[in-house]
Simulated assay, not measured.
Amino acid sequence: MRKLLVLILSLFMMVLSFATTIKGKVIKVADGDTITILEENGENTRVRFYGIDAPEKKQEYGIKSLDVLKKLIDKKEVEIDVK
């Protein structure tokens, strides 16, 4: 019983540790669903959007997708909820 309780508490703590938010400035837009941000702590972090499947640059509308995302968030401060 004690082992089960420890396992449940461990899993709960793991779930809580994944519920994080990162903040920073967008320094690169790779394509319509992937960016790189410079975090407040100085680290570069590559971010792939959850639930978005934008075309790659070489695919039809890939450059358009990239351009639209750049206009929306390039060089802007963002706050990202990590999934």
Rank of each mutant, 00 (worst) to 15 (best):
L38M: 11
L7R: 11
E56W: 06
I63A: 07
G51D: 00
I22G: 05
S17R: 10
D31A: 05
M14H: 12
V26M: 02
F18W: 14
V68F: 15
A19L: 11
G51S: 01
T20I: 14
P55W: 03
N44P: 09
K58R: 15
L66N: 12
V26N: 04
K28F: 09
R46I: 06
E39T: 14
N44D: 11
T45W: 03
T36E: 07
V26T: 09
K58Y: 15
L9D: 08
L9G: 10
M14W: 13
L9I: 12
L4R: 14
D53S: 10
A54F: 00
E39D: 08
D33N: 05
F18V: 08
K3M: 06
K57F: 06
A30R: 09
K58C: 05
D67V: 14
E39V: 02
N44H: 14
I35M: 07
L9K: 05
L66G: 03
E56H: 08
I52Y: 00
L38W: 01
S17L: 14
K58Q: 11
D67N: 14
K23I: 15
T45S: 08
M13P: 06
L66H: 14
E39Q: 13
G32L: 02
L5R: 09
D31T: 07
L16N: 09
D67T: 15
G32D: 02
I22M: 09
F49S: 02
T34W: 07
F49N: 01
D33S: 02
S10N: 08
L38G: 01
A19Q: 14
V6D: 13
L66C: 06
G42W: 06
L9S: 12
I35H: 10
D31F: 03
T34K: 04
T45G: 03
I22V: 15
E43Y: 12
T34I: 01
F12V: 12
N41R: 07
I63G: 05
I52A: 00
D31C: 05
I27M: 07
S65G: 05
Q59L: 02
D53C: 00
L7Y: 13
K58N: 13
S10A: 11
L66S: 07
E60V: 15
Q59W: 05
